[in-house]
Write a protein that binds this DNA or RNA. Sequence first.
DNA 1: TTTAAACATGTATTTTGAATACATTTTTTA
DNA 2: TAAAAAATGTATTCAAAATACATGTTTAAA
Lengths: 146, 146
Amino acid sequence: MNLKKYTDFSLRVLIFAGLKSGEELSTIKEVSDVYSISPEHLRKVVHDLTKRGLLTSVRGRNGGFRLAKPASDINIGLLIRSLESDFNLLECFDKGTNHCVISPGCSLKHVVNKALFQFFKVLEEYTLEDLIQNEEELRELMGMES
Amino acid sequence: MNLKKYTDFSLRVLIFAGLKSGEELSTIKEVSDVYSISPEHLRKVVHDLTKRGLLTSVRGRNGGFRLAKPASDINIGLLIRSLESDFNLLECFDKGTNHCVISPGCSLKHVVNKALFQFFKVLEEYTLEDLIQNEEELRELMGMES
DNA sequence: TTTAAACATGTATTTTGAATACATTTTTTA
DNA sequence: TAAAAAATGTATTCAAAATACATGTTTAAA
């Protein structure tokens, strides 16, 4: 059981962008340097976040991207939910492909679903703002001048 | 985010075995017929569950397997925890391979860990016994004579 | 007006782990 | 002694994620 690296990278991009002040832009190169992630790879992540309305991108020279809305409006639970496409923890979660004969009477799915619900309930208690409370420390770790 | 089919199959094998009464044995063939899973594949699952002390296997003609302990002693949370080897939801969960520079000051891991904890907390409220409360219905769905 | 810096986009390749299949051995009872 | 069952090890297939590559588009600065 794990999350995709894409999800991990997406969160890190948002944390990075969230530490910039005001209208200040971040670039893929900056982020790829800080986290040592291939810029090729990050490009897709950033592009995807833009399409999802979380980042605003500015093309052309001196371009880059910034948060499309306040950090306090970016809910971590909803974010992870949308970034991870597939939550079919058991075969029977997907009625289309399920072949398990006992699923009509099997309570396992309810138990796992309840657990999954609690998982997201916790995540939904946090926003990006909560993750960047310690701005100074994070900027320092990233080597950003503040 | 999903569980391995192995985990799913393991749970189904235990549910099947749990519906047998007393010392009665199940065979891989029976289970593979009921769930339409390749016996080759199930063999590993059963073998693995035996090694983990959840099933007792009897070799030779008329052999098979049965639960190694009462269904009420098989905790679903602990079971899934042990069947799924990898819970490194984020790169920084594994200190050995983590490369994220901000992890010392990053609170994301605490948030995700808290969510994972709640996930298991729910699962740990159930045992195999809870999953086979409706014996009759399940036996019927499986085509087992009761 | 040209060039460089940035994102946009589509495609291809690599890698990894899970899922599955195959083959052989061991055990035990009828 | 033969048949039915699990034990065990290895090999193959498959799918999804991760990654890389190539090219296009936009825009500001030189």
